[in-house]
């Protein structure tokens, strides 16, 4: 790592930035802290009387005492965790692959090839995002049923392979920032559009692709509604559905719910922690070396 970063900060300035960042972080990390702390509490502590004012979140109350580690095995026993995890990973894998590849291809078409009707089609694509799902759900459901896909994973996977308007737009914006000369040079060398896309554009768009993959993964991981609507077999549900099983209309067991939520969330946080390094490998790195 070079001593002189683009931000060019001195030692004390760095300390100041750290202090500011830590302060800023506090409200953002709060949900996680609360989740973890509640997941380790005994029910009696959660329902502890707190006397004069409604302090459910005081510092004293934040620390679990006694620490109940067995909330975790209990939570894992409540739902068929492994089965749900398998289904979730299965869905995540295909929808991420499908959405990222197809969106990248389509975005390249919109960004770099001047074909007839391009702008109107692009506008149409944006328009598809503007109609609330609440009203298109019935015809879409009827369609999937007519296709015989009701009760299978197909309605949740196949549409991903047709690209996602959000990612297409995002990738188009990224492709558009890449200098035209790069592809022009390849074109003069006789490369096909497909090769330019594969060998010139995709490597440069890695941070943007990683961003799309992350969003799609998160979306699928958290999607509770889609699987619930289209699937009727309890062994085909996902973790997001399993998490709902901890929520009860009366007398939710918060410790168990939050233990479930931690199991559900912490892998994603770790994944994000490592994945975000991919964002750093933009053209910036290639540039700094050149």
């Amino acid at each position: 790592m070079s001593t002189k970063s683009p931000s060019g900060l001195g030692k004390y300035q760095r300390l100041g930035v750290h202090a500011a960042l830590i302060m800023l972080c506090l409200p953002f990390i709060m949900p996680l802290i609360w989740m973890v702390s509640t997941s380790l509490k005994a029910p009696s502590q959660i329902a502890m009387k707190s006397g004069e004012s409604a302090v459910a979140f005081s510092a004293k109350n934040l620390l679990p005492n006694p620490v109940k580690w067995d909330n975790y095995p209990k939570a894992l026993e409540t739902v068929p965790f492994a089965v749900y995890l398998r289904n979730t990973l299965f869905l995540c894998f295909f929808s991420v692959i499908g959405a990222v590849i197809s969106s990248a291809v389509v975005a390249y078409g919109f960004a770099r090839i001047r074909f007839k009707g391009r702008d109107s089609l692009f506008y149409l694509m944006l328009a598809t995002m503007c109609l609330p799902g609440a009203v298109t759900m019935i015809p879409a459901f009827a369609l999937f049923r007519w296709l015989g896909w009701y009760g299978t994973f197909l309605p949740l996977i196949v549409p991903a392979f047709c690209g996602n308007a959000f990612y297409i737009f995002l990738l188009k914006q990224f492709f558009a920032t890449i200098p035209e000369e790069l592809s022009e040079a390849a074109r003069i060398d006789g490369a096909s559009e497909w090769r330019i896309f594969r060998q010139v554009m995709l490597p440069l768009a890695k941070p943007a692709l990683a961003t799309c993959a992350l969003f799609q993964f998160l979306g699928t991981w958290n999607d509770f509604f889609g699987p619930l609507i289209y699937i009727n077999d309890p062994t085909k549900y996902t973790l997001a559905y399993g998490l709902q099983q901890f929520l009860a209309s009366h007398g939710t067991e918060w410790a168990k719910l939050m233990a479930g939520a931690c199991i559900f969330t912490i892998p994603i946080i770790i994944l994000f922690f490592f994945a975000q390094k991919t964002f750093i490998q933009g053209i910036a790195t290639t540039g700094s070396k050149g």
Partner: peptide, 27 residues
């Protein structure tokens, strides 16, 4: 002020002494 407890830590304000007399369901 009670919302965080009824919504959050799973306890009912009545058993936390916030009400002396409260209307609620049989459950």
């Amino acid at each position: 002020g009670l919302l965080s407890s009824s919504n959050g830590s799973g306890d009912w304000p009545f058993i936390k002494d916030f009400y002396s007399i409260a209307l609620d369901g049989q459950w």
